[in-house]
Design a binder for these strands. Sequence first.
DNA 1: TCTATTCTGTCACTAAGTGACAAGAGGTCG
DNA 2: CGACCTCTTGTCACTTAGTGACAGAATAGA
Lengths: 204, 204
Amino acid sequence: MTADREDARLIVSRHAAKLFLERGVAGTSGDDIAEAAGLSKRTVWRYFRSKEACVEPLFSASSLRFASVLREWPLQTSIEAYLHEAIRPLDQTPQEIADDVLAVRLVALLPAEPALRTAWLMSCHVGEEQLIDVVAQRSRRLPTDFDVRLCAAAVMAALRVVDEDVSTAAITESRKFELPDIIDQMAKAIRTASTLPICDPVGP
Amino acid sequence: MTADREDARLIVSRHAAKLFLERGVAGTSGDDIAEAAGLSKRTVWRYFRSKEACVEPLFSASSLRFASVLREWPLQTSIEAYLHEAIRPLDQTPQEIADDVLAVRLVALLPAEPALRTAWLMSCHVGEEQLIDVVAQRSRRLPTDFDVRLCAAAVMAALRVVDEDVSTAAITESRKFELPDIIDQMAKAIRTASTLPICDPVGP
DNA sequence: TCTATTCTGTCACTAAGTGACAAGAGGTCG
DNA sequence: CGACCTCTTGTCACTTAGTGACAGAATAGA
């Protein structure tokens, strides 16, 4: 009851991420990951379909948190106002912060580790699916609507580019970012990329 | 000189695609692909980093052709006018048509074969990189510009959604499409998703 | 508490993927 | 033409990613 399957996957994900960062993807075996996580190799392969997929939960974690924030987005609020109000450093647990740092370092590693990109893109895909519902609600359409899916895809793509941009700048150029600035970037990207009028207050 | 490496990869890709469609991904081994392509297993693994990646060239083929069409897009022409003028059925070789059909069938298979999605997304990623140059030229900015990359990502995401939508409709619902309609959809998607003014005639 | 179910580890196995090396297919220069 | 160079391929042995089958531990529910 304490740790359900998704939690367990995330825990393994953290170990895998650290190993990938330390020794590279090719330099870490499934056994290494299993050992670090205190599991049998067999269980690791039950959790993940491939070695690279071991980091997907970590990648997805922030997307999922972001999506769950957006799910609470009141119809009457603009994206800028809402994000600044809803995302505050104090709300983040140390674990979440550590996960974000790990994810950022992994994203910065993408150019050097092409194998990780599949995991990254798959995580963005699940993020996109989460966004579909948000867009559907704010545009008062169905999640199956073509324009809704297109909007969600465009928005997710924009968020991905921001993520990659910030991550590489932070790691490879050692640039420092303040949370409000990142929120501004995210909000601006969402507003720019959204193809349906979801960013400003909608209806009653 | 006749068949360079990329051509060889594409040829293998066709065999892999057919096998995946016939027997499923899990049901076809690397040996099967190698045998079908008339190559040794070793060469297949020299061409591709994984079994699923064997279909990437096929996925990328249409993106690459589309991108090369867009590369010729004159600055004074709108996206709708140009696409209708530049894409004509008669220009397509039988091989290209067959490749497109294969790609469409594979895309329609994505829900049933999650393993293929990594290959699909990676191909969309290379398509995105191609688009960056097009967007850069039409917006008179550098390919490294953040807004250029964001626009390319949004446009590619839109094209991907169109592709997935058309493919599933064509295969799973047996819907028939006429080329002009698809071009309309593509153009509309590009116009909708583009975050920079690239769709209409731009300066001299 | 007994039981049904779900989860995990062990172990043997298949198949994906790599390293090392030798043989062949051009290409260039004398 | 032959000698040489380079690039690609196949062979084979090998490592490791990933699966199937089963038995034991854990957990939920009555």
